[in-house]
Nucleic acid binder design. Structure first.
Length: 823
RNA sequence: GCGGGCGUAGCCGAAUUGGCAUAGGCGCCUGACUUAGGAUCAGGUGGGGAAACCCGUGGGGGUUCAAGUCCCUCCGCCCGCACCA
């Protein structure tokens, strides 16, 4: 019965929405706008309820804003997702384009079934040639400005995916898609110079006040800005060794140096190494990458047999190779100060290298193990020549100035962030629009020849390697500059290039003479609300910030940041784990919709936990929201038809006590739901408020539904339907039309709370003695403080509790409580 | 190891600015209606106690008239980063 009910209602309204014209959006400068979206979904076949949560959140906010009178853009698009699409295509023996489009169609159907019909949407797919065109267009402009460049560098290679990866995509040494351990390879690849924006990515966080701190902290750590200094340590008969340090003030305490095992000068420094030393070196090199994945590996190293000169003290110190020094950070070499660095200390102890204190807190005489523990404590320099007695920043500044004056060093800033590697050895992605000419070198494809499209006949063997290399028609090209023969680039772009700017393309998805319409961008941007998973904190969300800054420098936009408010929703868990296909603990939306309806599923997801918290899926809990919707339906079913026939009367100013209670609850609920959705994004408490309202309506229905107070009852029902509409849109469209109102409910104004009606006439105040609850009193809302105090002190329980004691103070907190302090 | 967050009923959770702890839902109990109820409607539901009252937000301590909320400390869980020089 109920299944039939919701199925029929939902089918009916999904059809109406699909051809409804009232959802059109325009760039009308006179109207306030609201641009909200969820992170670009992957067309990865079947969705499960874990995916559905961010759609629910965004859809509720969109509908709410629409009812608030905003022009709302809530678009949807699809990521081509190069690598997984290609792997899936190989696995299933179909072309990745067909696989992608089939999955897009399937996902679209599933989302429509959920009521996410995106009536005010503009749709894009980043696998379309027209999207390729603009990716390439941007690339060529970046190439011209030196932001895109090709270089040989150590890069991450995923042996499973058979392609290189960006640093961000190989975090912790594992591939972001397949989890394989990545290898380091020296390869020539395409990069985007994101490091040109590293300071701005940090500084502009000041504009991101509405982003969660944890995301900003993650990004900050990822950029990893460390101010410090570079110093050169001389080596007899060789070029000096450069190191980076944040603690130049400890240089007198450097008792040895350490190179990363992969450091390019290791072989040069140990030409006549013994077989034993060579074996140690080989061991260190083999060990290094794995050690970082597996966590703790004991510090290990080998002495090169050579020494370097400390430029401050002139002391000769041994040069070691050590597994705890990373080639990817700083210069890949360090000066080791065992007295003031835990890692250096451990290494020094293992190999019997001396430890020299150069910073000491006044009066302290630390020795041995305690030295390391004190390494970052405050103190003054000792054993540091002419710098003795200096402390903190002053020591750092004076020593850096000295190094610069003597020409062996200078203050620098080191960053962890590396340039974004965007080339991929895959078929299914945007072709990088350049050719290699024997005479002219690297030449960009002219705009007029864009887009460079993928050949349809690429062979998919599943044997690895890029199929594009095996398509002569694609590879053999003419040089646009000299007309000679040239070889076309076969690498394609990282899928994260697509997602870096898709939300601009939404504004004008069919534009052919530019990536987007600047007037539309002026109107809609920046994005007001962006909902998505936290897993993109240092991937998509860094890339798209970079992309916007890059476009600003190309003169395409005038602002620095694309997203005003970021809202990372919590994951959906089941059986204690994140719900995901690979875990096999998914719940299909279809099975829930078939049983309870799409509105119930939405309401459950929104109600059972606040949106930012993880949600534990529990089968039984969905009954509550379902029963609630049926309760609403039955309530309206009893009255709607009659109300639709009647003339709408104004609510009388003379209210019965029951009608007064009802109106108060109605207006309090308007206020609560509005605040919860608009300000705090606490959609779970908004739903709870609506449940309270329905309980109150049921309670008062016998007294108010008929007779002179009927208009107040009608007001309650209509307001309920309006407030519930963003949460249960199918049901509320149905009920709204049953009340004789016109399609669509999202075009109705959101109700406005009347403060006078919401105010309580009487207040129940707690009366405490020394902070302990003793009794309660009921007073008129406007009662004076004096009167409240008198009433409280007259209460028998208070008289009893304070008998024989001195009343020191009586605190009256208006509207809340009275606290009598006795001694 | 460093950084961030969290810990409230049998379960999910509420408490927005330090002001009546536990809203709303699940579950459970009672009653009504009913041939029947896994439907619906109404009521109850932190622990102890006959009651007065006492206890109660992971443990301990502190600030305050008043602490789930602020401070210190310990325990547990989650997330992020991790030889970053």
């Amino acid at each position: 019965m109920t299944e039939y009910l919701f199925d029929e209602i939902e089918t009916r309204w999904q059809k109406r929405w699909a051809d409804g014209r009232s959802f059109e959006v325009t760039e009308d400068p006179a109207r306030p706008k609201y641009y909200c979206l969820e992170m670009l979904p992957y067309p990865s076949g079947d969705i499960h309820v874990g995916h559905v949560r961010n759609y629910c959140i965004t859809d509720v906010v969109s509908r709410f804003k629409r009812m608030k009178g905003f022009n709302v853009l809530h678009p949807i698009g699809w990521d081509a997702l190069g690598l997984p699409a290609e792997n899936a295509a190989i696995k299933h023996g179909v072309h990745p384009e067909k696989w992608t489009r089939d999955n897009i169609a399937s996902m679209k159907r599933q989302l429509q079934r959920l009521g996410f019909s995106y009536p005010w949407s503009r749709e894009i797919a980043s696998c379309d040639p027209e999207y390729y065109r603009w990716n390439q267009w941007f690339f060529l402009r970046m190439l011209k400005k030196g932001i895109a460049y090709r270089a040989k560098a150590p890069v991450n290679w995923c042996p499973q995916c058979q392609t290189v990866l960006a640093n961000e995509q190989a975090e912790g040494g594992a591939c972001w898609r397949c989890g394989s351990v990545v290898e380091q390879r020296e390869m020539e690849q395409w990069f985007l110079r994101i490091t040109a924006y590293q300071d701005e990515l940090l500084d502009d966080m000041a504009q991101l006040a509405a982003w969660p701190d944890r995301v900003l902290i993650q990004q900050k750590n990822w950029v990893g800005r460390s101010p410090g200094a570079e110093i050169e340590f001389g080596i007899d008969g060789k070029a000096p060794l450069r190191v980076f340090t944040t603690r130049i003030d400890t240089t007198y305490g450097a008792t040895f140096m350490v190179l990363a095992p992969e450091h390019p000068r290791v072989d040069e420094l140990m030409p006549g190494a013994t077989a034993e030393a060579k074996a140690s070196l080989a061991r260190l090199r083999a060990q290094d990458r794995r050690s970082r994945l597996e966590g703790k590996v004991e510090k290990d190293g080998v002495f090169t047999g050579r020494h370097a000169v400390n430029p401050f003290s002139g002391e000769k110190i041994p040069i070691w190779v050590g597994n705890f020094v990373l080639m990817g950070y700083g210069t890949g070499a360090i000066m080791a100060v065992p007295a003031h660095d835990q890692r250096d200390f451990e290494f020094a102890r293992k190999f019997g290298i001396p430890v020299r204190v150069v910073i000491q807190a006044e009066g302290s005489k630390l020795e041995g193990d305690a030295l390391a523990a004190a390494y970052d404590g405050p103190g003054r320099l000792v054993n540091s020549g002419t710098f003795d007695g200096l402390g903190g920043d002053e020591a750092i500044m004076k020593m850096a100035a000295h190094a610069e004056a003597k020409g062996f060093g200078k203050a620098t800033i080191t960053y962890r962030l590396k340039d974004w590697l965007i080339s991929r050895q895959r078929y299914w992605g945007t072709p990088i629009p350049v050719v290699y000419c024997d005479k002219c070198g690297i030449v960009g494809v002219p705009d007029a020849e864009l887009p460079v499209v993928l050949p349809k006949d690429a062979p998919f063997t599943g044997e690895g390697g890029n199929p594009l290399e095996k398509v002569p028609n694609f590879v053999n090209a003419r040089c646009p500059r000299c007309g000679g023969t040239a070889r076309r680039e076969t690498d394609t772009m990282d899928t994260f290039v697509d997602s870096s700017w898709y939300f601009y393309r939404y504004l004008s998805p069919h534009k052919h003479d530019g990536p987007f319409d600047p007037a539309a961008v002026r109107y809609w941007f920046p994005i007001d609300l962006y909902v998505g998973g936290i897993e993109h904190a240092i991937l998509h969300l860094v890339y798209s910030r970079f992309w916007t800054k890059m476009m600003r420098d190309l003169g395409l936009v005038t602002f620095d940041e694309p997203v005003l408010r970021l809202f990372p929703q919590g994951m959906v868990h089941k059986d204690g784990e994140v719900m995901s296909k690979s875990k096999g603990n998914t719940v299909a939306p279809d099975s829930i919709i078939g049983r309870y309806g799409a509105d119930t599923l939405r309401l459950y997801i929104l109600f059972v936990a606040p949106p930012e918290m993880p949600l534990e899926w529990q089968d039984g809990q969905i009954e509550g929201p379902h029963k609630f919707l049926l309760r609403v339906f039955r309530l309206l079913d009893r009255h709607a038809d009659a109300f639709a026939q009647e003339i709408r009367e104004r609510v009388s100013a003379e209210l019965s006590p029951a009608a007064r209670d009802l109106r108060r609850k109605v207006h309090q609920t308007i206020r609560r739901v509005s605040d919860d959705v608009e300000g705090r994004m606490k959609l779970n408490t908004a739903v709870a408020a609506l449940m309270e309202l329905v309980n109150e309506i049921y309670r008062l229905e016998p007294e108010v539904a008929t007779g002179p107070m009927r208009p107040a009852f009608r007001e309650a029902l209509e307001t309920l339907v309006l407030l519930l509409a963003p949460f249960a849109p199918h049901l509320c469209e149905e009920l709204w039309s049953r009340l004789g109102r016109r399609f669509s409910i999202v075009d109705r104004n959101w109700p406005v709370a009347d403060a006078a009606l919401a105010r309580e006439d009487e207040l129940e105040l707690a009366v405490q003695v020394n902070g302990k609850l003793r009794t309660r009193i009921t007073v008129a809302a406007g009662a004076s403080e004096d009167e409240v105090r008198r009433r409280a002190l007259a209460e028998p329980k208070i008289v009893e509790a304070s008998a024989g004691k001195k009343i020191a103070k009586v605190l009256v907190v208006p509207g809340r409580l009275v606290n009598v302090v006795v001694q």
